[in-house]
Design a protein around this nucleic acid. Structure first.
Length: 640
DNA sequence: AGCACGCCGACT
DNA sequence: GTCGGCGTGCTC
C-alpha cells in the first residue's frame, strides 16, 4: 500500500493523507472522499511517515483523474514557498494557481500534440545600436534578472520581442506579464503580427472555460507566448525559456488580500528554480529593483537613453489653475492640439464626477455607512458610490444634518473633466478611460482601438491611460490633481507621484516633440527631477532616504491587520497580537487604527513590523500568530 | 472553504 | 412547540 499527502483548494495549509495500491506521480489530480463528499485534490508527495494516533481513518483514493500530473514539482515547491513567505494558506495559493475547472472531476488530456511554431519574420523591426547591444547582452541560457530601464518610447518592447523570437526558435515558450487586463488585448494585436496564432492571454476576466483552455494550450505548447496579468504567475513553466515582466514598477503585481503574493517576486523565485532568465522592463523602475540592479548587482542593469527616431523628450511645465478646472495655459494648448488634429491626454487621478459632496451650510460630508470614507459623486449613473465597497446610494436633496438644500460637490473626477471639456471645446471626440468605462470588455477594447486609430481628440482617464499605450498622435499631456497621492501615509508616496508623472508624460511626443503640463504644486525637490526627466537622479536620492530611515529595500515590512464587524473584537485581536510581539524583540509600529478605519462594515486596526531578518520574523509569526483572526501582508505596498 | 452541529431568540 | 440566526470545529 502507498500513502500520499493530498492538498485541496480550501483555506487550509494542511494536507491530508490517503492510501492507494497504485503508484501515483506527484502533482496528479485525484478524486477522494473528503468529509463525506467527493473532492478533487492534488498529490503533493509520497509519504511513509503516518502518525496513526492523529488520524482516525486513512481513506483510499477513489481514482486518479488524468493520464499525467497537472502540476510539476517546481510548482509544488513554489506553492509551498508562497504559502510560507506570504503567510497564506497553501490551499488558497493552490486555488489561485490553477484555473477553476482543474478542480472539477472531468479528466484532462495533457498529451502533447505537435508543438506549434509560427513566426512572421518580416514583421520584426530592425533594432538600433542601443537596442542591439542590450539584445546581444542578455543571456538566455541561465537564470539571471535583467532590468531594462529605458525612457518611454525607447523601444523596450522591441528588444524582448526579438528575445522571445529566439526562445521560440529554440522550442521554448515565453511568459509576458502586464499590469492591466486591457493591456493584454492591446499587446495581443502587436504580438499576433509576429507570432500569429500562437499568442495566448490569461487574466481574471476570461470565462472559466476560456481560462482553462488558454492555460492548457500554453502547457501543451499550442500557444507559445502567454500574455497575462498577475494570476498568470502560477502557469505551467516546464517548457518556458523566458519571463518578461513589463512595467515592473506597477502596483498591480501585488495581490493584497489573502492569498497575498507578489507576482514579480514569485516569478523571479520560479525562474531561479527553472534556471531561466527574467526581464524586468520599465521607464520608472521601483527603488527596490533599481537598488538591486545598480548597487547590489543582483540584477543586470541595461539603460536606454534615447527615444526611437531620436525624438526628444517632451517639455514639462507646472501651472496651477486659478478658479477653473484647467489653467488658461492648458486650455490654449488643448485648442491648438485639436486644431492640429492631434490627440491630447488628460490624467485625472479619480474616477467619478467629484471627490465628494458637502453641505454648503454646515459642512456635513456624505460618507459611506459601511466604510469610513467619503462617497464619490457619479453624475453619469446619478448616484453616490463608495470606491471601497462599491455600494451605491441615492443623491440626497437636502443635508441630513441641517436640512439645507445647499449641497456642493468638491474636487474633480474624470466625469467632471469630461463635462468641462465638452462645454468648452464643443463638438469633438472625447473618450474616457477609467475603471467604470473599462469594466466591460467590449467598451475598453473600443476605446483603445479608437485611440490607436487616432479617432479621438481628447482622452480623459485615471492612471490607466499612463500604462503603455503607444499612441503616435499624442503630443500634449495634462496631469491634473496629482496631489491626492500624498493624502494617505505611505513612504512610497514620492516615488508613486514621480513615476506616475514620468510615465504619463511619456505618452507625449512619440513622433515629434511634445508638451506636458502638470496642474499641481509639488515639493520643489520632486519638481526639479521631473522637469529634467531625471528619474535616475530621483532614485539615487530616494535610496539614500530609504537607507537613513531603514525602509525597503533596506528592510522588510509586514503589516498585520485585524478586521471585525465588532469594533471591540477587532481591538481585542490586535491587542493580543501586540502582547505577543511586545517581548519578541522585533521593532514595530502600532497598534493603531488604520488610516481608513472601517471598510465593508469591518473595523480595522493594524501593526506594522519593520525587520532586517525577514525569515526570522516569518518564522516567529508562523509559530505564534497564525490562526488568531489576523490578516498578514508581507512586503505591503498600500497602508490604508 | 464548506458543512454539520449546537445553542438562543421570534414566530405559526 | 418549531424555524432559523450564525458562532465553533472538523475534514485523512
Amino acid at each position: 500500500m502507498n500513502y500520499y499527502n493530498v492538498l485541496f483548494n480550501i483555506a487550509l495549509s494542511k494536507s491530508f493523507t490517503y492510501k492507494s495500491t497504485q503508484n501515483i506521480e506527484v502533482g496528479s489530480r485525484v478524486l477522494v472522499d473528503f468529509n463525506n463528499r467527493k473532492k478533487v485534490g492534488i498529490v503533493l508527495e509520497k509519504t511513509t511517515q503516518i502518525n496513526i494516533d492523529d488520524i482516525k481513518e486513512i481513506k483510499e483514493i477513489i481514482s486518479i483523474l488524468d493520464n499525467k500530473p497537472v502540476i510539476t514539482e517546481e510548482l509544488i515547491k513554489t506553492i509551498n514557498f508562497a504559502s510560507y513567505y506570504y503567510l497564506s494558506p497553501r490551499g488558497l495559493i493552490l486555488r489561485n494557481a490553477l484555473p477553476s475547472k482543474a478542480f472539477s472531476k472531468e479528466p484532462i488530456n495533457f498529451e502533447k500534440n505537435s508543438i506549434k511554431k509560427q513566426i512572421n519574420h518580416q514583421k520584426f523591426f530592425n533594432l538600433n545600436d542601443e537596442q542591439k547591444k542590450i539584445y546581444e547582452s542578455i543571456d538566455l541560457k541561465i537564470f539571471n534578472v535583467n532590468l531594462i530601464f529605458g525612457v518611454t518610447g525607447s523601444g523596450k518592447t522591441e528588444i524582448f520581442l526579438h528575445l522571445i523570437r529566439d526562445v521560440i526558435e529554440k522550442g521554448k515558450n515565453a511568459l509576458v506579464l502586464v499590469p492591466e487586463i486591457v493591456l493584454t488585448n492591446q499587446y495581443k494585436r502587436v504580438f499576433e503580427e509576429k507570432f500569429l496564432d500562437t499568442v495566448g492571454v490569461y487574466h481574471s476576466q476570461l470565462t472559466p472555460k476560456q481560462k482553462f483552455l488558454e492555460w492548457l494550450m500554453f502547457k501543451k505548447q499550442e500557444k507559445r507566448v502567454l500574455l497575462g496579468t498577475r494570476s498568470a504567475a502560477f502557469v505551467d513553466l516546464s517548457d518556458t525559456g523566458l519571463i518578461v515582466i513589463d512595467e515592473e514598477n506597477d502596483d498591480s503585481y501585488k495581490q493584497e488580500n489573502t492569498p497575498s503574493y507578489n507576482a514579480k517576486d514569485l516569478l523571479i523565485y520560479r525562474a531561479k528554480q527553472l534556471n531561466i532568465p527574467v526581464i524586468l522592463s520599465s521607464a520608472t523602475p521601483t527603488v527596490e529593483t533599481y537598488y538591486k540592479a545598480s548597487i547590489t548587482k543582483k540584477f543586470k542593469l541595461f539603460k536606454l537613453n534615447n527615444r526611437i527616431n531620436n525624438c526628444e523628450l517632451p517639455v514639462i511645465e507646472f501651472s496651477k489653475p486659478e478658479n477653473t478646472l484647467l489653467s488658461i495655459k492648458s486650455q490654449e494648448y488643448i485648442k491648438k492640439s485639436i486644431e492640429e488634429k492631434q490627440t491630447c491626454a488628460i490624467l485625472v487621478n479619480r474616477r467619478g464626477f467629484a471627490h465628494f459632496l458637502i453641505c454648503g451650510d454646515c459642512g456635513y460630508i456624505f460618507r459611506c455607512p459601511n466604510c469610513n470614507v467619503s462617497l464619490v459623486y457619479h453624475k453619469k449613473t446619478k448616484d453616490l458610490k463608495c470606491h471601497f465597497c462599491e455600494s451605491s446610494f441615492e443623491i440626497p436633496k437636502k443635508c441630513p444634518n441641517c436640512s439645507s438644500y445647499n449641497i456642493k460637490d468638491v474636487g474633480t473626477g474624470t466625469q467632471k473633466m469630461e463635462e468641462f471639456l465638452r462645454e468648452n471645446f464643443g463638438n469633438i471626440n472625447i473618450a474616457r478611460l477609467d475603471r467604470d468605462t473599462a469594466s466591460s470588455k467590449k467598451n475598453a477594447y473600443n476605446i483603445v482601438s479608437n485611440l490607436l486609430d487616432g479617432k479621438i481628440d481628447i482622452i480623459v482617464g485615471t492612471s490607466m491611460i499612463s500604462k503603455g499605450y503607444d499612441i503616435e498622435k499624442i503630443n500634449l499631456v495634462i496631469i491634473s490633481n496629482i496631489e491626492s497621492i500624498f493624502a494617505l501615509p505611505d513612504f512610497r508616496a514620492d516615488e508613486k507621484c514621480v513615476s506616475l508623472i514620468i510615465q504619463t508624460a511619456g505618452r507625449s511626443g512619440r513622433k515629434q516633440k511634445g508638451n506636458v503640463i502638470i496642474e499641481s504644486k509639488l515639493p520643489s525637490r520632486l519638481e526639479n527631477f521631473i522637469i529634467n526627466h531625471d528619474y535616475e537622479g530621483f532614485l539615487k536620492e530616494e535610496i539614500n532616504l530609504r537607507k537613513s530611515l531603514n525602509y525597503p529595500p533596506f528592510s522588510h515590512l509586514i503589516r498585520i491587520l485585524s478586521q471585525n464587524t465588532n469594533e471591540k473584537v477587532a481591538k481585542q485581536n490586535i491587542q493580543l497580537c501586540f502582547e505577543i510581539l511586545k517581548n519578541s524583540g522585533f521593532s514595530f509600529l502600532g497598534p493603531t487604527k488604520c488610516p481608513i478605519d472601517k471598510i465593508k462594515n469591518k473595523y480595522r486596526y493594524h501593526i506594522i513590523i519593520k525587520t532586517n531578518d525577514i525569515f526570522k520574523t516569518l518564522h516567529f509569526i508562523t509559530a505564534e500568530l497564525l490562526d488568531k483572526n489576523l490578516n498578514f501582508d508581507v512586503d505591503p505596498i498600500s497602508f490604508f
